[in-house]
Computed example of a mutant assay.
Amino acid sequence: MDRPASDLAPALEPFSQSAALSLGVELELQLVNTHHYDLAPYSDEMLRLMARHQLPGSVVPEMTSSMIEISTGVCHSASEVLGELSQIRDALVQCADKLNIAVVGGGTHPFQQWHEQRIYDKPRFRQLSDLYGYLSKQFTIFGQHVHIGCPTADEALLMLHRMSRYIPHFIALSASSPYVQAQDTQFDSARLNSVFAFPMSGRAPFTLSWDHFGEFFSKTTRTGVVKSMKDFYWDIRPKPEYGTIEIRVFDTPLTVERAAALAGFVQALASWFLHEQPFMPQEDDYMVYTYNRFQACRFGLDAVYVEPSTGAHMPLREHILQTFRQIGEHARRLGAGPGVQMLGEDVELGSNDARWLRLKQRRERLLAEVVRQGALRFRGQS
């Protein structure tokens, strides 16, 4: 007799132990040709060439064949993240030059047509394509994911819900996707609109108990809607196999320096949470969550931020600078000070990568030229 479906539901794997405040960074990157700077389906060729290099972390394919994902190993500081990302970046550039293509950051390619993209030939990607249809090709978008180490599962959930208040900060600081299919979307981060189309996107359920989270996971998997934690496209999700939480709302920056600075900001923020316990998250925090996230996607650093505890409205830019002051000592102690200072200077100027892209397009009036200059910026030449 067949076993009931409830007996076949996968179990939530145990939460691995990791060092508090350890870091890992993933970057999804664009592969473009060097003729008209549209996306180019060269991920297989890039992976073969990259396999010849001894590098930290990993280089893997992504959903469509014009994408590639790089990741660091386990790091303990923003400078270590920068060192590893720079090493991988230099190898990527060398391999791309051999193929007469280029590698570019940014959350979206400014003028690619989603229907022209090819799903990478990997079982999970084929399964996702079968399930989600055209959304899979529209998922040719590029994000940075930051993992932060948490010693225990309950501490991870506490960290996750504290970090959720700062989702607008992460979005505005990393925003680099104003253009979609050759149109200025009027969003600083249009990439996240594609993520929100997926049914399991949004935010994690509010619980500070891993046992309760396990009950939620069991109920969800019994329905057959999800099979593993990978099927949740939440803004922040636990990664029990790594002993981390993974923040997923960052657009891929145009430079590895900015990627490392954003990781340092996350680490300093986490240190502030751990050592000063500035607030206890509540379910009611999420009453303003969707509004704050929309504001940051739409307006970037010019967004309005609603403080979850008081309901007070203030410019997001001011709240980011206030946060930088609060975490300043932690950033200095962890070696993240220079990166946070760089981000702070940009905030004061109202500058992020979305603004850089728009300024270039205003000057050049040709998105292909903007992508070309973005490729030079990624390799450290602009």
Results as ranks from 00 to 15, higher is better:
A5G: 00
A19G: 03
G24M: 09
E26Q: 10
L31F: 06
L39Q: 04
S43I: 13
E45T: 06
M50G: 02
S71N: 15
S79I: 02
L85F: 10
Q87Y: 04
R89A: 11
C95S: 15
C95A: 15
A102L: 05
V103L: 15
G105M: 04
H109M: 07
W114M: 10
E116A: 12
R118N: 14
P123I: 06
R124F: 00
Q127M: 12
K137C: 03
G149E: 01
R165T: 11
R165M: 06
I171T: 12
S174D: 07
S174G: 05
A175T: 05
V195M: 10
M200I: 04
F206N: 04
W210Q: 02
W210H: 05
W210V: 13
D211P: 00
H212S: 11
R237S: 02
K239H: 12
D251E: 07
Q267D: 01
L274D: 10
M287N: 13
V288R: 08
T290V: 11
N292T: 01
R317H: 07
R317D: 03
E318G: 03
T323S: 11
E329A: 15
L334C: 04
G335S: 04
G337T: 00
E348Y: 04
N352V: 10
W356A: 10
L359G: 00
Q361S: 11
E369N: 13
Q373M: 13
G374D: 10
R377K: 12
R379N: 05
